[in-house]
Design a protein around this nucleic acid. Structure first.
Length: 280
DNA sequence: CCCCAGTCCTGCGGGC
DNA sequence: TGCCCGCAGGACTGGG
């Protein structure tokens, strides 16, 4: 679930305690589960980071990037249920890693927590990371891309606009929840063929994308009814109160006050939209 | 090359 | 009450 606003909120939450901190120790938590299922941890990971200081804490699309004094780079990708917490982990059962840190002579811990274990936690050399973005092929960040570039990129795919917005190689940071919200705000039907969108309509998408992602950051992201996403202090986000379509099938559209929100499935994912506000 | 189904995983909730 | 199954979706893989 964590998309751009949630990961940006994580980064802002951990920066005060991780930026410039020294890693006294990184260790796997005794949670009885695999550290993380998707990318088994490299054996030398723990030794390589011990004693390094963290030079910067950054967001790369939906990933948290820690640059170390050794020139190694730690990349945490939360995927569905991953969290990074500076206090009060939700349950010991799903703790995967613990950083033991020192900053300004104070010691504290930061935890990597992941209920479903679909996240990844990887260590790269600087060369590995910068030559190929650590193996990730990412398009421009959703908050950096220009409307013109977005139009150009959308012009090269025959997929629907909703599916194209989820393609991280096309534009990076938008996920399933915000894609529906963005297209509703822009009044674009989610099944519109991406390459057929005029520059003017793409400009509407671009404006909506920026407005919604920035607004969601100010609300510290969206915590859905499953309660999984939390900020670094283990507090809920509050942007879910501003959702207009996501997971609102059957409710009356708040824009037109006439039509009911519909749910369709596109490439195995739910899309929510208003058939009146978002005409084909 | 382009695109999509399948896969990883756990917890929740609907149906019986 | 309890069991089973479907569903949630980010990103990678394999194959059409």
């Amino acid at each position: 679930m964590p998309e751009l606003p949630e990961v940006e909120t994580m980064v802002r939450g951990i920066r005060p305690v991780m930026d410039r901190a020294k890693i006294l120790e990184l260790r796997a938590c005794p949670c009885d589960r695999k550290p993380l299922s998707i990318s088994p941890i490299q054996p030398e990971f723990f030794e390589r980071v011990r004693g390094c200081s963290i030079d910067s804490v950054e967001r790369l699309a939906k990933r948290v990037v820690l640059r170390l004094s050794s020139d190694d780079v730690i990349v945490f990708e939360p995927r569905m249920t991953g969290l990074v917490l500076v206090s009060d982990p939700p349950s010991v059962e799903h703790l995967r890693f613990e950083f033991r840190l020192s900053l300004n002579k104070l010691r504290h811990s930061v935890w990597i927590w992941d209920r479903r274990g679909l996240g990844t936690f990887r260590l790269f050399t600087k060369e590995e990371f910068e030559n190929a973005l650590g193996g990730y092929a990412l398009g421009p960040d959703a908050l950096q891309i220009s409307a013109k570039d977005l139009h150009h990129r959308l012009g090269k795919t025959q997929r629907s606009i909703k599916v194209a917005l989820l393609d991280q190689k096309l534009v990076a940071g938008v996920g399933n929840l915000y894609a529906s919200e963005i297209l509703h705000e822009a009044k674009i039907h989610p099944q519109t063929v991406a390459s057929k969108l005029s520059l003017k309509r793409v400009q509407r998408i671009h404006t909506a994308m920026n407005r919604i992602l920035l607004e969601a950051i100010t609300y510290e992201g969206s915590t859905l009814s499953d309660g999984t996403y939390r900020n670094a202090l283990n507090h809920d986000g509050s942007y879910q109160s501003k959702h207009r379509v996501y997971s609102k099938e059957g409710t009356t559209c708040v824009s037109c006050n006439v039509s009911k929100i519909r749910r369709i499935v596109q490439t195995q994912r739910s899309t929510f939209f208003c058939p009146r506000c978002q005409r084909k």
